Amino acid sequence: MDSLVVLVLCLSCLLLLSLWRQSSGRGKLPPGPTPLPVIGNILQIGIKDISKSLTNLSKVYGPVFTLYFGLKPIVVLHGYEAVKEALIDLGEEFSGRGIFPLAERANRGFGIVFSNGKKWKEIRRFSLMTLRNFGMGKRSIEDRVQEEARCLVEELRKTKASPCDPTFILGCAPCNVICSIIFHKRFDYKDQQFLNLMEKLNENIKILSSPWIQICNNFSPIIDYFPGTHNKLLKNVAFMKSYILEKVKEHQESMDMNNPQDFIDCFLMKMEKEKHNQPSEFTIESLENTAVDLFGAGTETTSTTLRYALLLLLKHPEVTAKVQEEIERVIGRNRSPCMQDRSHMPYTDAVVHEVQRYIDLLPTSLPHAVTCDIKFRNYLIPKGTTILISLTSVLHDNKEFPNPEMFDPHHFLDEGGNFKKSKYFMPFSAGKRICVGEALAGMELFLFLTSILQNFNLKSLVDPKNLDTTPVVNGFASVPPFYQLCFIPV
């Protein structure tokens, strides 16, 4: 009986604490739906499609509103004006990374994606500088992407125009580009180590996009005490870190300090320079996690976009025909596509942009946080508050993009057929937390897609009208449904 009384008292205290925290903070924060004790607004949000729920709530509470995930307040920004004001106009104040408990377990605050403060700034600055020195957006990395595009075309030829699921092959190409940047090595598509790495990356994007992960991140005790797919994700990350550590040891034994070959060499050189400046942010643990982040951000996002792009091109054969006509006119058949071609191919450029806009790969991006107490639109948001960005509300804005739910390359073309930029184009987020590999991803999408369409016609196994382009999961990332196609050599 005594234990029951204690339990009831504990629960009562928890409920009172929950109510007090919510009521004391709500006077400062933007308005929002009334949260339930302990669980907050979790029942009012469709976990399978958070973005749709945010759109519905914005119609009631406006472009800036507050939700509670458990006891934790989260300020939501919906629509271009609110997102721009926060991420661009007040970029420094909104540059923090929001709480992501599962990532905390995986990387302990290291790396480039989930770190904060001085650690994040130094690692991000170093990573950007190193990638630029190796030619991100310049010639040397373009050579690597072109080489991988040629290998991709050869792998597709091996399908002999038979029906195939493109998931694996389209994942190999961007993964190999990242391998060449980090390890100075590309792998054969049949290499077992490479296959294991690909498998872990593919599993992780599916797990991260599941409703279960949303629950884990908002009720963090689940991570330590409950079984579930989150444990598989943590094991996959541990596998990748151990693999990278092996490569780091190989580099330490063979590195030429006067001739760095890749990202690992550059990081080890930085560690050597910083060894007298303790404590340094440049450690082996930081290198492991930064490399894992580059793999995660640079492989599955690009391969998922490529997979979605081919599905949309199957669905819209008239678009595919126009792209192939432009390829034939500008590039021809006797040389590989290059980035200089893009400025002469406005329709193809528009298609690449429209694919990214339409699929809305990361509907709410990753959570941000404010780095200080900030007054925002007459609300006071306390330091450390998590900020949720609705990228969907920007990419699918119906004023900027008429009929935003329709796939239409003319969203990025003017009346004369010239490519038209849009400030609403934010597939990689915006501001200080914009994806480090934005330029690389854009290069890969253009070169891989043009190389495929230069060499193959795409054949659907069903009537294009019957192809479903609805994402199968739409949590962290929008993942396309399973499909097969035939690559018919031109």
Rank of each mutant, 00 (worst) to 15 (best):
D2Y: 14
L7E: 10
V8D: 07
V8L: 10
L9F: 12
L9A: 12
C10D: 04
S12I: 13
S12R: 09
C13I: 14
L17A: 14
L17Y: 11
W20F: 12
R21K: 13
Q22V: 14
Q22I: 13
S23F: 15
G27M: 10
L29V: 03
L29C: 03
L29Y: 09
P33V: 02
T34I: 10
P35G: 12
P35F: 02
V38N: 02
I39Q: 03
G40F: 03
I42F: 10
I42L: 14
I42D: 04
Q44F: 07
I45N: 05
I45T: 10
G46T: 08
I47H: 13
I47D: 10
I47Q: 13
I47G: 14
K48Y: 08
I50P: 13
I50E: 04
I50N: 07
S51M: 10
S53P: 08
T55M: 14
N56I: 09
V60K: 15
Y61P: 01
Y61H: 13
G62L: 00
P63L: 02
V64K: 03
F65S: 03
L67H: 03
F69G: 05
L71C: 13
K72F: 04
V75P: 02
V75H: 00
V76R: 01
H78Q: 11
H78V: 10
G79L: 01
G79K: 04
E81H: 08
V83P: 02
A86L: 05
A86T: 10
A86V: 08
L90R: 15
G91V: 02
E92S: 12
F94M: 11
F94N: 05
S95A: 12
G96Y: 10
G96Q: 11
R97T: 01
I99F: 15
I99V: 12
F100C: 15
A103G: 15
A103M: 15
R105L: 13
N107F: 04
G109S: 08
G109M: 06
F110H: 11
G111S: 11
G111C: 03
I112F: 11
N116M: 05
N116P: 04
N116T: 13
G117Y: 07
K119Y: 15
K121Q: 13
E122C: 09
I123S: 15
R124S: 06
R125T: 07
F126T: 07
S127C: 14
L128D: 03
M129Q: 14
L131K: 03
N133T: 10
N133Q: 12
F134I: 15
G135D: 09
M136F: 10
M136V: 12
M136G: 12
G137V: 09
G137S: 13
K138L: 11
R139Y: 08
R139E: 10
S140W: 14
D143Q: 15
D143V: 11
R144A: 12
R144T: 11
R144P: 04
V145D: 02
E147M: 07
A149K: 00
C151E: 09
L152Q: 01
V153L: 03
T159K: 06
T159Y: 11
A161T: 07
C164W: 03
P166H: 00
T167G: 07
I169M: 06
I169G: 01
L170H: 00
L170I: 07
G171R: 15
C172Y: 04
A173P: 02
C175H: 02
C175D: 00
I178M: 15
H184D: 15
R186M: 01
D188W: 01
D188K: 05
K190M: 08
Q192K: 14
Q193H: 09
L195R: 09
N196D: 15
L197A: 03
L197F: 09
K200F: 05
L201H: 05
E203T: 07
K206C: 05
K206A: 10
K206I: 04
I207Y: 10
S209G: 09
W212G: 07
W212C: 07
Q214P: 08
I215G: 05
I215F: 15
I215W: 14
C216L: 14
F219I: 11
F219E: 04
P221C: 11
P221V: 07
D224R: 15
D224G: 11
F226T: 06
F226Y: 06
P227T: 12
T229Y: 15
T229H: 13
H230S: 11
K232M: 06
L233V: 15
L233A: 08
K235Y: 06
K235L: 05
K235F: 04
N236L: 03
V237G: 04
V237S: 07
F239G: 09
Y243F: 14
E250S: 07
E253Y: 09
E253W: 06
E253P: 06
S254L: 10
S254Y: 08
M255E: 08
M255R: 11
N258I: 07
N258E: 13
I264R: 01
C266A: 14
F267L: 04
M269I: 15
K270E: 11
K270Q: 15
E272I: 08
F282V: 05
T283D: 08
I284D: 05
E285L: 04
E285Y: 04
L287P: 01
L287K: 00
E288H: 05
N289V: 15
T290D: 03
A291K: 01
A291G: 05
D293I: 05
F295N: 00
F295E: 01
F295V: 08
T299M: 09
E300F: 15
E300A: 15
E300C: 10
T301W: 00
T301A: 06
S303L: 02
T304W: 07
T304F: 04
T305G: 03
R307P: 00
R307C: 02
R307N: 04
Y308Q: 03
Y308I: 02
L313W: 02
K315Y: 01
H316Y: 11
T320G: 10
T320R: 13
A321F: 09
A321Q: 12
A321S: 13
V323L: 12
Q324R: 11
E325Y: 10
I327T: 05
E328I: 13
E328K: 15
V330A: 10
V330Q: 13
V330R: 11
I331R: 01
P337K: 00
P337S: 09
P337F: 02
C338F: 06
C338D: 09
M339L: 11
M339Y: 10
D341R: 02
S343N: 13
S343V: 14
H344V: 12
Y347P: 00
T348K: 00
D349P: 00
D349I: 11
V352P: 00
V352G: 03
V352S: 05
E354M: 00
Q356S: 10
Y358I: 08
I359Y: 07
L361V: 07
L362F: 07
P363D: 01
T364N: 12
L366V: 15
L366G: 02
A369C: 14
T371S: 12
K375P: 10
F376H: 06
R377D: 08
Y379V: 05
Y379C: 05
L380W: 10
I381Y: 00
P382L: 01
K383M: 06
G384A: 04
G384M: 03
T385F: 04
T386V: 09
L388E: 02
L391N: 11
T392A: 13
T392P: 03
S393V: 01
V394P: 04
D397L: 03
N398L: 08
N398M: 11
K399L: 09
K399G: 12
E400C: 09
F401W: 09
F401K: 00
P402W: 06
P402A: 15
P402Y: 07
M406Q: 14
D408P: 00
P409V: 07
H410A: 12
H411Q: 03
F412L: 02
L413H: 02
L413D: 04
E415W: 05
E415D: 13
N418R: 12
N418C: 09
N418L: 08
F419K: 06
K420L: 07
K421S: 12
K421P: 14
K423R: 14
F425H: 10
M426D: 05
R433T: 00
I434S: 15
C435H: 00
C435N: 00
C435D: 00
C435F: 00
A439M: 13
L440H: 01
A441T: 05
G442L: 14
G442D: 15
M443S: 04
M443A: 06
L445S: 09
L445C: 08
F446E: 02
F446R: 01
F448R: 01
T450R: 01
T450A: 13
N455G: 06
N455L: 03
N457H: 15
L458M: 04
L458C: 02
K459A: 07
S460Q: 03
S460G: 10
L461T: 14
L461K: 08
D463E: 10
P464S: 05
L467C: 03
L467P: 00
L467H: 02
L467R: 01
T469G: 04
T469F: 05
T469I: 14
T469H: 06
T469C: 11
T470D: 08
T470W: 04
T470P: 03
P471I: 03
G475C: 07
G475E: 05
A477L: 12
A477H: 07
A477G: 08
P480L: 02
P480G: 03
P481N: 04
F482R: 15
F482D: 14
F482I: 12
Y483H: 01
Y483P: 04
Q484L: 05
Q484K: 13
L485H: 00
L485Y: 00
F487Y: 01
I488T: 11
I488R: 05
I488Y: 06
V490D: 05
